[in-house]
Design a binder for these strands. Structure first.
Lengths: 248, 248
DNA sequence: TGTACATCAGTGAACGCGCGTTCACTGATGTAC
DNA sequence: TGTACATCAGTGAACGCGCGTTCACTGATGTAC
């Protein structure tokens, strides 16, 4: 296998560039017409090439769509990771750092990204495209964001916020759910299973908030969007650490 | 204006029936091809009529879509109201009734309806149809479900679960959000503004849960769907009454 | 009750459009000797 | 370094399809007198 930075042939370089260009145009079309309105012909037209030429780069419309989905997950994941890295830097400087802040920073990064790229958000968290089945390539990129959000929890556990009991659930989980949490153990090291389950609820809820805001369910309901989102994110965090929250 | 049950002319009756038939077929097509794949021509074809004939019933594709959206909101609202009415009947018989149960019953009704009619759910809570703007007729029907969910909260307030302080927020809200909650006052009689705000978070989160389950975000994550949903709904309720939750 | 007219449902052809995908081809770029 | 061949990008025409919407029309139903 050639080294990553091997001198590319002109052909290979051109190919890589056009692949990116096609995706860029497709992304813009997505933003204007939605996923089901994405057309290979329109993309080709805008790039000034024959529609058949696009088939040298993507074998079908679905394959182009998959590439956009993977890119979107990656883009969101990178944004959240960057926000978390910034928090970690500050925390290291301050010798510790506020975990609630860490959670909030991740939540805000999700919301920011979604507001900045609403159609990409809709592509990955909105209604599934009818007749399209996402291949397994999307799983990895899709995991990046929840992993960061889980990190705040595991650090909370490391700091002993869930009590020295360690793995003993503070609220018993029904058996099937307990088994699920067992499987997810690696993502929640040291976190009691019931708190981890609530963590998944909180993760879900954050995307619920963003979805409602973006898809118009808050029109005529909530005007102070940012204030509400922050308040909600904080309340959800309290829900996760709930049994210890007596004095909060 | 004619009385509601006035003897209709044959023409009027036929019109009403065909209107329903068109919507029924359209709903089925929706379930198979999604909102953007809904085609007037295909609906007409299945009904054995000329595609132009549909225009006697709906002035455009968008108008048909609006009718389906209104129907969907109404269908969900009716399901949740029915579940709540059943709870109220039991509660009256038992002389009170468990409010947590009331909340749970409403949440489950939302989920059940969504699992039974996934494309209708996607139509109203999924990605907006590109180029389609929902008219104001949808607002009323859209309100039915949150109204029921808010009822559990107001009854909790009536029972004094938020303390005798009444309207005094237990956690201060930022000013813009406080103003929003002021506006929403009628829906949350007697409920402290901060608890009402958390109520909106919980409402949002429930739909977030349903959306994640339905749109595949829990694939390979949560297998015990029902157990998880119930657990989540309970945790969210505790979040709403949080400041009093010390012993729960 | 009977007739004359107005209303309405439904037809079928047409307009003008865009789509995904295939295929035989030309000409440029890359590679092996 | 130079030549011969293989690979690949891009073209343009074509296939076969479906769509929303309009329009002039026929014939049935409803209504006013």
């Amino acid at each position: 296998m050639a080294p990553v930075n091997a001198p590319q042939t002109a052909r290979a370089r051109a190919r890589a560039e056009l692949t990116v260009a096609i995706k860029d145009v497709a992304r813009r079309h997505l933003a204007e017409h939605g996923a089901s309105g994405l057309s290979l012909r329109a993309v080709a037209r805008e790039l000034g090439m024959a529609s058949s030429a696009v088939y040298r780069y993507f074998a079908s419309r679905d394959e182009l769509l998959t590439a956009l989905i993977v890119d979107s997950y990656d883009s969101l994941g990178a944004a959240v990771e960057a926000a978390d890295a910034a928090w970690q830097k500050d925390a290291a400087a301050a010798g510790g750092g506020d975990l609630a802040e860490r959670w909030l920073v991740a939540c805000r990064a999700v919301r920011r990204w979604a507001l900045d790229s609403p159609q990409e958000y809709a592509l990955i968290y909105g209604s599934p495209v009818p007749g399209y089945r996402a291949p397994d390539d999307t799983i990895g990129p899709a995991t990046r964001t929840p992993v960061v959000m889980a990190a705040a929890l595991t650090e909370a556990a490391a700091r002993g916020m869930f009590g020295s009991g360690g793995g003993v659930p503070l609220v018993p989980l029904p058996p099937g759910l307990a088994a699920d949490m067992e499987t997810l153990g690696p993502f929640f090291e040291g976190v009691p299973a019931d708190a981890a389950a609530r963590g998944i609820v909180a993760w879900t809820a954050v995307f619920g908030l963003v979805t409602f805001e973006l898809f118009g369910q808050y029109d005529n309901v909530i005007a102070a969007r940012e204030e509400f989102f922050d308040y909600a994110a904080r309340a959800l965090l309290l829900m996760v650490v709930m049994p210890n929250a007596g004095g909060v």
